[in-house]
Design a protein around this nucleic acid. Structure first.
Length: 579
RNA sequence: UGGACUAUGGUGUAAUGGUAGCACAACAGGUUUUGGUUCUGUUUGUCUAGGUUCGAAUCCUGGUAGUCCAACCA
């Protein structure tokens, strides 16, 4: 029965348009019914949740259709790249739960690409241009005006050949000459107007060192790399749609003819992730890190994979979110609330429930003996009976949450207020008898009397009261620092807002970002208390502070200095009705 | 004002010429030793004007709106 059910669910889940293409290709026997993809990051920064969407697609398609996925570092621009990023990227992909068949680099193909470029020169399909970048740009025309041909366009092949060799010896300075493909200066597709395919870069490469001085451009490397590796489906985001005709052209050329066979990579594009209240571009994230507006790439407010990891998101929750938003060709703006609902959904099943008092006030049970301490059992996770239980101490002197007491309470306030009964979670029902205030009128202590018959196992254990509060025994808890995070940006679409501010005020994106940042994105609470049970909690452990939210243990937390990060609040229908 | 792409509730997504469905969000209620979870119910949608068709969210044409393209970045 259960198996039938699973099949039903799978059948009901409709295929996204890429999966439909893949199934079609499989049916038609393209590429020998083989599926191969690649995830091709440039090692110039940390992966963010937008990359996670591409990772789930690239690795997911291979997984689902019995194919393989390579991890290929697109390292054709040594000025921006670094091994630091290579290592971080690998860590993040593994954390997300994916394994690559092979780790490869575009730079592995530099010799083949070089030979191919020479072949094109010999065939009259490429030439060396000696004009300045400004001139070349000007000759390119505009989208509405055709370009004009370079005076070097029809230079003798021998000249181009010789100059191309010298591009790689070091004798030619950066920017002096480039190799261009000879295509069509009048094409409505700007990428066809004799694109530059090789340029001189003298910065040492993080893998090949100083072996090369001439480096291929993206368009000249990507499709060919796919072809060399045997990639069948080259999946990327929508901004590469205009590149596709060029991709196909170069693949045709490197294959040595258009219709030789059907074994060739094809590029398909899907929409990239836009998230509300989130700035995604690597360039701007780099500014945040460099200018120390955040605490590094893994600051829990960052949309990086490592940021979400430090914040307490699970890999499963991120994959669940990606699965929910789907893949289309529409430029969507996804609601951050959907990501939050995904992480709540996942953490609800796995986070250990504990008590933490973040804004403490004394609670004294006046009819409970001074020296008595009871060890009470509390469940680790009501959603998971196998998660077990742990002990929490109860005594006369407790901490409670300041928000859980009101002297004059509104009608539907089910918490501590004089004359009202509440349940102390996992312990007794108590009745509030009053409070003590300081000279300024601040409540400094709340008083209550307990009903000894209402503890679990006692005769009145199942007596119902409206409210249940969390609490801690003052002599049996630990101090902790708790970091409360909120969104980094105040506007729903910070990318557009950033552009607007820069334009209006004619300022740098750094200045604009400073203006846009949410001043309340981080609140550090230093005087919090948590259960003794957390003495040995390990970094990244998933927790639920009951009635508050999901939290995790920060990577810098130690038994002496406990630090917790708020991942996301619990849904709070009470707070909502108060607004 | 060139080319390419896109348009389904507030948001995202399905329906592949034949009953507009799902998730999030919102709202109302039941259960609950977390105002959580869970369960039930409710509200809200095919950008627009034509055309093809027995029948159009789907195909065609015009309009409107949005995205991308003029790096020696990827």
């Amino acid at each position: 029965m259960a198996e039938v059910n699973t099949t039903d669910v799978q059948e009901k889940k409709s295929l996204n348009f890429i999966e439909q293409i893949v199934e079609n290709d499989l049916r038609e026997g393209k590429n020998g019914k083989r599926i191969q993809t690649r995830f091709p990051p440039e090692p110039n920064g940390y992966l963010h949740i937008g990359h996670a969407k591409a990772i789930c697609m690239d690795f997911g398609i291979a997984q689902k259709y019995g194919g393989v996925c390579y991890l290929r570092f697109d390292d054709t621009n040594p000025t921006k790249e670094d091994v630091e990023y290579v290592e971080a990227i690998k860590e993040d992909i593994e954390w997300l739960g994916y394994k690559w068949e092979k780790e490869v680099y575009a730079s592995d193909y530099f010799p083949q690409l070089w030979d191919f470029a020479i072949q094109l020169i010999k065939e009259g399909k490429a030439y060396i241009d000696e004009q300045s970048s400004e001139t070349i740009a000007a000759q390119k025309g505009t989208p509405t005006q055709p370009g004009v041909e370079s005076p070097y366009r029809n230079r003798p092949i021998e000249e181009s050949l010789e100059l191309f060799q010298r591009m790689n010896t070091g004798e030619i300075e950066e920017g002096k000459i480039v190799l261009r493909a000879k295509i069509d200066m009048a094409s409505p597709n700007m990428h066809f107007r004799d694109p530059i395919i090789y340029r001189v870069v003298k910065t040492p490469h993080h893998r090949t060192g100083t072996t090369w001085k001439a480096y291929p451009m993206y368009d000249f490397a990507h499709g060919q790399s796919d072809y060399f590796e045997g990639v069948t489906h080259s999946l990327c985001t929508l901004e590469f749609v205009p590149h596709r005709p060029l991709y196909d052209l170069f693949v045709d050329w490197v294959k040595g003819g258009k219709d030789l066979d059907d074994n060739r990579p094809r590029q398909y594009e899907f929409n990239k992730l836009n998230l509300s209240y989130t700035l995604m571009s690597k360039r701007n994230l780099l500014v945040l890190v460099k200018e120390k507006l955040v605490d590094g790439w893994d600051d829990p407010r960052m949309p990086t994979i490592c940021g979400f990891r430090r914040r307490g998101y699970s890999p499963e929750s991120i994959r669940l979110f990606i699965d929910k938003i789907g893949y289309t060709t529409y430029d969507a703006l996804n609601d951050f609330a959907l990501l939050e609902s995904a992480v709540r959904e996942d953490l609800n099943t796995r986070a250990t429930r504990v008590s933490a008092v973040l804004n403490p006030v004394k609670l004294t049970i006046t009819n409970y003996p001074e020296d008595k301490v009871e060890e009470l059992e509390t469940v680790n996770n009501p959603e998971d009976p196998t998660a077990g239980t742990h002990i929490i101490e109860f005594s006369r002197n407790l901490w409670m949450e300041r928000d859980d007491f009101m002297e004059d309470a509104p009608k539907k306030y089910f918490r501590m207020t004089p004359g009202q009964e509440v349940r102390l979670k996992s312990a007794y029902i108590v009745k509030c008898t009053g409070c003590r205030k300081d000279e300024a009128g601040n409540v400094v202590e709340v008083f209550a009397e307990y009903d000894p018959n209402t503890r679990s196992g006692m005769p009145d254990a199942n007596r119902k009261v409206k409210g249940t509060l969390h609490w801690l025994s003052r002599d049996h808890c630990l101090s902790a620092e708790v970091r409360m995070y909120d969104r980094l940006w105040t506007m729903e679409n910070p990318r557009d807002a950033l552009a607007d501010i820069c334009k209006q005020k004619d300022c740098s994106s750094l200045e604009a970002m400073k203006e846009m940042m949410n001043p309340d994105s981080l609140h550090i609470l230093k005087e919090c208390y948590v259960e003794k049970f957390l003495a040995n909690a390990r970094p990244y452990d998933y927790l639920q502070f009951q009635r508050i939210g999901y939290f995790n243990v920060d990577k810098d937390s130690t038994p002496k200095q406990l630090i917790f990060n708020k991942t996301v609040s619990l849904k709070d229908t009470w707070a909502k009705t108060q607004k």
